[in-house]
Write a protein that binds this DNA or RNA. Structure first.
Lengths: 190, 190
DNA sequence: GTAGGCATACCGACCGGTCGGTAGGGTGGC
DNA sequence: GCCACCCTACCGACCGGTCGGTATGCCTAC
C-alpha cells in the first residue's frame, strides 16, 4: 500500500518511462514531474531500478489474480478462454503505459529479479496452457494447432497493444476484447 | 550497399542494442565489438541515432518487398495470407535481433523519421488489410471479425516473436510459421 | 598533392546516487 | 504543562564518472 508521495513518484515514472524509455528518463525528470525532490525519491526507493521492478510487480500481480479468479468460476473451456482474454485485453488497455514499459524495458531487470519474474510468467503461461489443453482433450477445442502456439499468439497480441491502442480510438476496449476473443475462439474451433 | 566497415558497425550495433538496449549501449562498446574506432563510426554515421534508423530501414524495406512479391504472385486469398504470414514469421526469426531492437526502441526515433516510418508501416498494414478484405468480400473468409483486428493480431504475434523465440528451440521457424498461419486462417474461416 | 578513410586525444554536459542537514510530530519523564 | 529526545519524511547541493560527439592529423591510393 504505497503512500501519496510514493504513488506520485510511481505514476510519474510510468508516464515518463512509457513515453521516453527508462534510460532516457533522468531521476531529476521524474521528481520534477512528481513534484517531489530527489531526496524524497531516494528515501522510498533504493535505486532507479526499484521503480521498474515495482511497476512490473503491480502489473503481474493484478493480471495473475484476474486469471486465477476467472478459472475459479468453473465455467466451460470456451467461456473460460473468452473471459481470460477479455479481462486481459481490457485491463491492459486500462494500463497501456505500464504494459509499454514492461514490454520494452524488461531486459533491464537484474539477474535475480529476472529469474523471479520468469518464474511468475511461466506460471501464468502454464495455467493458460492447461485451460486450452483441457478443452482440446474434452473435445471443446480443435487440436489442429498446438496449445502452446495459441498461448503465444494470445499473449503476443496483448503485449503489442500499446503499439497501436489509443484510448480515444474508434473501438472501446470491451469491443476490441470481444473481437480478439472471437478470433482466438474461432481459431480454436477449426 | 554498405561497405565492410559500415556493415561490421551495424552488425555490432544490432547485437548490442538487442541484448542491452539502445541507451545502455555506449558508442565505445559498439566500436570495440566491431573492431573499429570511434573515428570510423563517426566517419560513416552522423550520430548514434543514425544506426537505429539504418537498422529499421533495412528491416522494413525487406519486409515490404517480401509482401509485394507475394501479392504479385496472384494466388488465392487464403494462399496469399498463408504465404505472407509464413514469410513474415520466417524472416523475422532470421532477424530476431533487428526485430527486438525495432520493437523496443522505436520510440527513440525523432519526429521526422517517426513520421516517415509511420507512413511506411501504414502502407504495409493497408496492403495486408486489403488482402483480407478482398477475401471477406468474395466469401473466402468469414466477416465475423473485422479485418483490421485480424491484421493487428497477426502483426502483433510477429513483433512479439523476439520475446520467446530461440533459434535452438524445439520448433524450427517453418514449423512455427505453419502453425501460426493455420491458426490465423482457421480464425478467418469461422 | 590531395581526398577519402580512418586513429587518438580530448571536451563539456549530464547523470545516478550520496550526504549533511532540517521540519515537525509523537512520546516519556517530571 | 512542558521540555528533551528521537524518528520519519524530506531537502538540495554536490561528486565521481561516463557518454556522445569533435578536432586534428596521419597514411595510403590515385
Amino acid at each position: 500500500m504505497p503512500g501519496a508521495t510514493e504513488q506520485k513518484i510511481i505514476d510519474a515514472a510510468v508516464r515518463l518511462f512509457a513515453s521516453q524509455g527508462y534510460d532516457a528518463t533522468s531521476v531529476q525528470e521524474i521528481v520534477t514531474a512528481a513534484e517531489v525532490t530527489k531526496g524524497a525519491l531516494y528515501h522510498y526507493f533504493r535505486a532507479k531500478d526499484d521503480l521498474l521492478f515495482e511497476i512490473y510487480r503491480l502489473l503481474i500481480t493484478s493480471q495473475s489474480a484476474d486469471m486465477d479468479r476467472i478459472i475459479g468460476l468453473g465455467l466451460s473451456s470456451s467461456e473460460t478462454v473468452r473471459e481470460i482474454l477479455c479481462s486481459l485485453v481490457v485491463s491492459t488497455a486500462e494500463r497501456v503505459d505500464e504494459t509499454a514499459v514492461f514490454v520494452r524495458e524488461l531486459h533491464r531487470l537484474g539477474e535475480d529479479r529476472m529469474t523471479e519474474f520468469r518464474a511468475e510468467r511461466r506460471r501464468y503461461h502454464e495455467t493458460f496452457l492447461a485451460v486450452i489443453e483441457k478443452g482440446q482433450a474434452d473435445g471443446s477445442f480443435s487440436s489442429s494447432v498446438p496449445a502452446d502456439t495459441v498461448v503465444r499468439i494470445a499473449v503476443g497480441v496483448v503485449n503489442q497493444l500499446p503499439m497501436w491502442y489509443r484510448p480515444d480510438g474508434p473501438k472501446p476496449p470491451p469491443v476490441l476484447a470481444g473481437e480478439i476473443a472471437d478470433f482466438v475462439l474461432a481459431g480454436l474451433s477449426a
